[in-house]
């Protein structure tokens, strides 16, 4: 709550919030057809909350886009639906299964669904004529993201060219586009994982239950704890046990690992995050582990 400040100081969360709201308003005013990429994960929920604040009491003036990879946690999907319903925003769903069926992407059985998300997303952007897509990327997540602009320009193939980014100064964002190009806009670029949790705690907003400690049947693979699910058959030697765990990120259920934790409230999670010695992606994202430049390569192709 921002009340009278005798010394006119804003807390860092208030400053981050103000910056993000500024970015939302700027993009909504300048782009013809923006969309917000909404996964139902904590970062995209914070992003949606900021969008709600930016335009209140009016409704959010753009739809939200969900890439349905068929491998989402059911708890995440439920939370996502409640948010969409409460805010009365239009939900656009682009499904990977549908994209495979239509021949937009090819499932060769070897490529992870994570990589199939990129062409599915780019196709949805193109088909709907979206000129800007808000993403929940944060610069503290990964080295390649640390250099990405708030307004990240994509060419007509949806590609990001890290060596040829537009300079971004002050709070002046350049939204110029040519036909067929689009912009990725990252309103929470300057937030850290801890800021996200502090904000969720402060705002008292709903996030999926998988972020809190719960009992789950899991097995170990490549040093990560994965959930038992028919979508992810066990390999030889893998044993399922029940443990008390929580998720630090919510991605593809078959690739996202959980951590053993008893943190069942936001303050407990904050305490745990503050003490954590491994980044959230390093700990639990199989998709980022393939090479040092895995994220940079996927981003160049047009990933989130």
């Amino acid at each position: 709550m921002t009340a009278t400040h005798a010394d006119y100081r804003l807390s860092q969360l208030d400053q981050l919030e103000a910056e993000s709201i500024h970015i939302f308003r700027e993009a909504a005013a300048e782009f013809e057809k923006p969309v917000l990429m909404f996964s139902g994960g904590k970062d995209s929920i914070v992003m949606l909350r900021l969008a709600e604040k930016a335009f209140f009491p009016a409704k959010i003036p753009f739809p939200v886009l969900q890439i349905d990879n068929g491998l989402d946690f059911p708890e995440v999907a439920e939370t996502r639906d409640r948010w969409v319903q409460r805010l009365g925003v239009r939900l656009v769903i682009a499904s990977i299964d549908d994209a495979i069926e239509r021949g937009i992407v090819v499932d060769d059985g070897k490529t992870s669904r994570n990589r199939l998300q990129t062409p599915t997303l780019l196709n949805a952007i193109e088909e709907n004529g979206f000129t800007a897509a808000f993403g929940g990327g944060r610069r503290d997540e990964e080295k390649a993201r640390a250099k990405e602009r708030v307004y990240s320009h994509r060419d007509e193939f949806g590609q990001w060219d890290p060596k040829n980014q537009r300079p971004e100064l002050w709070s002046l964002y350049n939204g110029r586009l040519h036909e067929g190009e689009h912009m990725r806009v990252f309103p929470i670029s300057n937030w850290t994982e801890l800021d996200i949790w502090d904000y969720i705690g402060r705002e008292g907003i709903e996030i999926p239950s998988v972020y809190f400690a719960h009992k789950r049947r899991v097995f170990e693979r490549d040093g990560m704890l994965l959930t038992e699910t028919p979508l992810n058959p066990l390999r030889e030697g893998e044993v399922v046990t029940e443990r008390t765990v929580r998720y630090r990120t919510c991605g593809d259920m078959t690739l996202t690992g959980c951590v053993e934790s008893t943190a069942s409230t936001i303050p407990e999670i904050i305490e745990e995050v503050a003490a954590a010695r491994v980044t959230e992606r390093g700990a639990t994202r199989g998709d980022d582990r393939f090479s040092e430049a895995a994220m940079e390569d996927r981003k160049k192709e047009g990933y989130f």
Partner: peptide
């Protein structure tokens, strides 16, 4: 206005209505 609250004053770098 700052979201659903009326505030008594606004100063830099607040985003307000």
């Amino acid at each position: 206005d700052l979201f659903d609250k009326e505030i008594p004053e606004a100063f830099p770098p607040m985003s307000v209505t």
